[in-house]
Computed example of a mutant assay.
Amino acid sequence: MGSIWDSSLYSGTRAGLKFMGQWPFQSPGRNKFLKCMWILFVGSIYLPKFIKFVESLNDVDLVMECMPMLCCHGIGIIKFINWAINTEQMKHLLVKIERDWESLKLQRDIDLLIVFTDRGRKINRIYAMALYSVLGVYLVSPGMPKILDLLLPRNESRPRIFLYQTEYFIDQDKYYMHILIHAYLTVPVSVTSIVYFDNLFAMFINHTCGMCEILKRHLEDLCDKTTSDNRTTGYYERIKLCATLQTNIIQFIEDLESSYSVALFLIVGLNMWLITLTGMMGVVKINEPSEVIRFTVFNGGAIFHLFWSSWQGHNLIVQTESVFISAYQNEWYRIPWKFQKMMLPFMMRSITPCRITAGKFYYMSMDSFGVAMRMTMSFFTLLLSVQ
């Protein structure tokens, strides 16, 4: 049997990580080369953007126009750096996924994990399509003046639209097409980092949820699955299996939390700021339809990105809470007393659902998403009043 990573369940995420040099099971030399290429591409656009931002510090409107794309690239950079720093931890998590697949003996358990993994793969595909659609709308915005010149001609051509503010220390009107092509080559690289970082995160979450569902089924069947000829051995072995599954799940979540927590904290903060700024720019440029469309779509993408990350954490909370419910609803009080005592530590560990946090401050959940959106709207209202 080949590796689980060769299956269609993981092929998309694996291909994306290989492309960016972040797949830990390919040669280190190849990974280093691809990482350097990524840094070269993103750095070549981030530097002129940052120079323009510094030069524009005295112009509030221009600063606000520079900030959204700086935040977008910043999110991509944070995710990429987090991968690079935590390569060994990521590899450790992937090895644990392989271990879990190999440890499953019952076909029912394997089918359950396949269902969760395949569902996550399909949802990841929808997420990627949504973000790349936002990117597509953003990238076609410079062509809107040309389209409007054809549909609603004027006596003079409409001014050109730059994809974002940059400073190359050259005549930007003269080299407009060169700058635009450079943007078209580099922006998708940052977005790809965001997409596959989130796909990998979702893959870890879905795997954990699948293992929790397997644990639930074993808990629910605890009293029914024991054999009549040797009930003592049957109870012991099944409680031991449930305890092992729970321990592996908790350790996996702890490792996942330590690998992502700091990066998620920075990403959530930048994401909230990005939502505020793009919403503000949509209002400021209300008289420029193409710009309004661009920043409105960008704003929707930023909201969707924050929602997606929070929703993944919320799924984990719900699934681990269901383990607690199953532990108390499996008629455990009907089994012999000595085995009831073995269940007590298990049930105590199930009381508190497992969570993924952003820097220990922000729980990745839908409740936190609602709080973040309210804070973002407050920032937006404040900036709008200042403007």
Rank of each mutant, 00 (worst) to 15 (best):
Y362W: 10
Q312T: 12
I114K: 15
G359H: 08
S310Y: 07
T320P: 05
L152V: 15
I77N: 13
F346H: 09
V297E: 09
L344I: 15
I335T: 12
P336T: 04
L113Q: 15
I253M: 12
P48G: 02
V268S: 08
S259F: 10
S310F: 09
V115E: 14
A243F: 11
R30N: 10
S310L: 09
E98K: 13
I51Q: 00
I325L: 10
F252Y: 15
G282I: 01
M373I: 05
Y10C: 11
V95W: 06
C242D: 04
S228H: 05
M69V: 04
Y175G: 04
W38V: 06
L256Q: 13
S44P: 06
S365M: 07
I126W: 09
A372D: 00
L106P: 01
Q165M: 11
V284E: 12
T186E: 00
W83T: 00
F80V: 01
L40N: 08
T357S: 15
N330F: 01
I123R: 15
K338C: 14
F19A: 14
V140K: 10
D111H: 12
Q26V: 13
L277N: 10
Y236W: 14
L70C: 06
S103M: 12
N315D: 01
G234C: 11
Y127A: 06
F80H: 12
N82K: 00
I250K: 11
G234F: 10
R238Y: 06
G12D: 13
S141M: 14
Q26S: 13
F380K: 01
Y138D: 02
K35E: 07
C36R: 14
Y260D: 01
M373V: 08
F201Q: 10
W332T: 05
L222W: 07
G136E: 04
S261V: 08
G120V: 07
V42D: 06
I179W: 05
I317P: 10
Q319Y: 02
C212G: 00
S261G: 06
T232K: 04
P68E: 14
R231H: 03
V134F: 13
S44H: 01
S157W: 03
Q246T: 00
D367C: 03
R160G: 13
G12S: 14
D109N: 08
Q251T: 02
F379T: 09
M343F: 01
I179E: 02
D109T: 01
R30Y: 09
Y138S: 02
K174L: 12
V268C: 11
I214T: 06
T276R: 03
M348S: 07
K360L: 05
L277P: 06
N82D: 03
T381W: 06
L94T: 01
L344R: 11
E257M: 03
I123P: 08
E254I: 09
C66L: 00
N31Q: 15
F361N: 02
K105F: 02
W23Q: 14
H314L: 03
M373G: 04
L106V: 00
R158S: 07
T352Q: 15
V42K: 04
